[in-house]
């Protein structure tokens, strides 16, 4: 990649008034670091990635509303976590955290446990108990 070929496309970074550094060769064939505002293929890939994650959130939301799973799954997806990450935050085995996805188990959770979930997700305990989406 030559210095003048370093892409300066629109990107999430550019919207954030930021940029990233890449290495490219100048006219004398010497490597220099150049700021790039973004690269279209990369932005496409990132958007695609977010789209899939949003789908997961949407699916979880539908399942919670229809009573198939507990709100914990929805908030887990919303926070881009997987079971391992959530279990690590809960300081519990994955097996137990996964059980809390069952509405029947979830309804019996203690206030302390619910509070811990609420803290991790940055919401109030009420939002977990009376889930409105």
């Amino acid at each position: 990649m030559k210095k003048n070929e370093v892409p300066q496309d629109d990107s999430p970074l550019k919207k954030h008034k930021s940029n990233e550094l890449v290495y490219a060769v100048d006219d004398d064939g010497k490597f220099v670091s150049v700021q790039s505002s973004g690269w279209e293929p990369k932005t496409i890939i990132q958007n695609q990635n977010l789209e899939v994650l949003n789908q997961r959130v949407q699916e979880a939301l539908n399942d919670v509303t229809s009573g198939k799973i507990s709100p914990i799954v929805y908030y887990m997806e919303l926070n881009r976590m997987d079971w391992q990450t959530l279990a690590a935050y809960m300081e519990q085995w994955t097996f137990f955290v996964k059980r809390h996805a069952k509405p029947s188990v979830f309804n019996k959770l203690s206030t302390r446990k619910l509070q811990k979930y609420a803290d991790i997700f940055g919401i109030s305990i009420d939002e977990l108990r009376n889930f409105k989406g």
Binding site: K42, I45, N49
Partner: peptide, 15 residues
Amino acid sequence: VNLVRMQEEIGTGGG
């Protein structure tokens, strides 16, 4: 997507 995202992620300097 994830394969390419890792390749071009911020911090790789590209490629």
